[in-house]
Design a protein around this nucleic acid. Structure first.
Lengths: 338, 338
DNA sequence: CTTCTTAGTTAAATCGGTTTAGCTAAAATA
DNA sequence: TATTTTAGCTAAACCGATTTAACTAAGAAG
């Protein structure tokens, strides 16, 4: 049972494939194809279960109705949920999504961008890893429509959709300070990505605004590609120092989850031994006992906005750059107060 | 800066595009193209940063080097991780992955299959929702290479990769019985999917093997598409009955997470008020306090096997059907013993 | 000196659609 | 009646690669 092509239909009806194409694309009226023939074509197409070959269509029209998505890791609930929202929104507009996990490695995103650019997608949504500036510039140069999410590069004029990371971290930290906690650590990562820099800045500003000194030994920056062990030792240091911290701000849920595991395995309890606030809001934080106070990102909106902007750029390649900064939502749970 | 095509290279060198194509596909020797010209072609291709248009290539060769993946929901960590493993394995073989979330709805997977079949992918890995038998039969009829994961249909001879759900549920239940727990409930879903049936059967068999009566009121089957509320009321019933259960087996992590939230919001504690064992092993279970005993599925292997089988079927469409049943791993944590 | 090899190269078909430009016959207008 | 318009349809180019089936010129063999 071979797939039926335009030609099959055309031949069986003794008409040209041009006609069949026009009719099936709803341009029958416009090209004054007689009602009679239009009916016949549609009927036979249905009977033969005709599905246009998107590859052929794509070759001619230069459109694939597919968007590429490059994120760090779709197994990470933050990116998984974001990916899902992007998929949903794209699907509403007739687009499919090709997912790529970069593992935050510029060499991976490099390959993925190249792959996606080989005529496979109409545009790209990317959460650019550290050191991928060149890649973004090359997207720009090749006029590939793209939107950055989660982070951006200050010196590159791009479309992007991010959250107000400074404000988010500021609020999270302030919340603990307002609960009479003053010895607050921050465990973070990738010191060079703008979103992480802003989170750290927000943390610092909240401290200084309350006249609390910012101590370098209370800021633990995990290596580029961090493992459970890295986090464990950081936590251990923070919690075993003479001047032990009372609380920790985690700047990603990946670190947060590892951090909580570490806290537990050190035999400590939240919040009695140490208070916790974390960026992102994975399910884990809701069912954890106690539940973890979280800085939730508006994933639905991020997804919706990024797709919207991308599609606008696909339609009109000269569209002016759009920069969207969304607000986070602080969710107070039991983990962050004495 | 337009993309360079084969023709561009050919014209600039004054040779035919046939030659260029042959050289760049490593068939230069075979077709005795002179070393001299080969070098020139390769050099210019590199200079112009030539990338073959995969759409054009796909049209001609009928191969896309893309596989389609249809899962319930990539935001669900179980499927997210599985998806990631599939992506990894596919990528090792030069394949990309198009992700689709069906939300366990047959109408969605129907559309997604149709979409993927329009010449977009070389094969499909699908976790078929309830009621999608027809769709699988049509995949079969159209000779589309496909592999089922997580579940299968008993009356359809398909490739599939699943785990031994009966044994897994049996072990999980038995573990609690061995800890002197006898009043064990099971909260499950989708009573018609084979994997869920087997999980329920495993639970029942473990009880009867220990001479514990199987009570219908201790088996809560969540509706097809369940929400937090559904689980909440089920849990409430189980824990407020006169003959209150001492433990619960959750047959998916989605239900498990909702269940744990419910337990907490009822003011109950694990394991003192109720013991818990759950299928799957999301991060949430590791950082939950107490950590949750889990029936972990070998996601890496499932991903690897399903891709392997799919690629074999893409290479050879007459390949005989392969059925792989993998073992789960029971991870004892603090949630399941008194 | 002709014929056969062989090395080196290419024209053209093909994949399955979309789109442009134009054709034919009948109807309308001059 | 001659010309223009219009309705209805189609041939052929095109997208950018792969692949088949030659074709040419030079050297080898007879």
């Amino acid at each position: 049972m071979k797939k039926t092509s335009l030609n099959d239909i055309a031949q069986q009806l003794g008409v040209s494939k041009t006609l069949v194409s026009l009719v099936l694309n709803g341009k029958g009226k416009e090209h004054r194809i007689s009602e009679d023939i239009q009916k016949k074509v549609k009927k036979l197409a249905k009977e033969l279960n005709y599905r246009p070959n998107q590859i052929a269509k794509g070759l001619r029209t230069g459109k694939t109705n597919t968007i590429g998505l490059i994120i760090a890791d779709m197994a990470n609930p933050f990116f998984g949920k974001l990916g899902r929202e992007i998929e949903k929104e794209a699907s509403l507009h007739g687009y499919r999504v090709m997912f790529c996990s970069s593992d935050e490695k510029a060499e991976n995103s490099q390959k993925q961008i190249e792959m996606l650019q080989q005529g496979q997608v109409d545009g790209i949504i990317i959460s650019p890893p550290e050191g991928s500036e060149e890649q973004i510039l090359s997207l720009e140069a090749s006029k590939t429509p793209y939107v950055l999410v989660d982070r951006y590069f200050a010196d590159i004029d791009s479309n992007y959709v991010v959250v107000d990371n400074f404000q988010a971290a500021y609020e999270g930290t302030k919340h603990m300070i307002n609960n009479d906690i003053r010895k607050i650590a921050c465990v973070t990562t990738s010191a060079r990505l703008v979103n992480m820099i802003q989170r750290l800045e927000g943390y610092k500003k909240a401290l200084t605004d309350s006249n609390i000194p910012v101590l370098e030994e209370r800021i633990k920056v995990m290596p580029f590609s961090h493992e459970k062990n890295d986090v464990f030792y950081a936590i251990k240091e923070l919690l075993s120092a003479k001047d032990r911290v009372e609380a920790i701000l985690f700047t990603t849920s990946k670190i947060g989850v590892m951090g909580l595991e570490s806290i537990h395995s050190l035999g400590m309890q939240v919040p009695s031994d140490v208070r916790v606030v974390s960026f992102d809001d994975p399910d884990a934080y809701k069912i954890s006992f106690p539940p973890i106070s979280a800085i939730a990102q508006p994933l639905k909106e991020i997804g919706r906005e990024s797709v919207k902007i991308l599609l606008e750029n696909i339609k009109n390649k000269e569209h002016k750059k759009q920069k969207v900064i969304l607000n986070t939502r602080f969710i107070e749970r039991k983990s962050s107060s004495k």
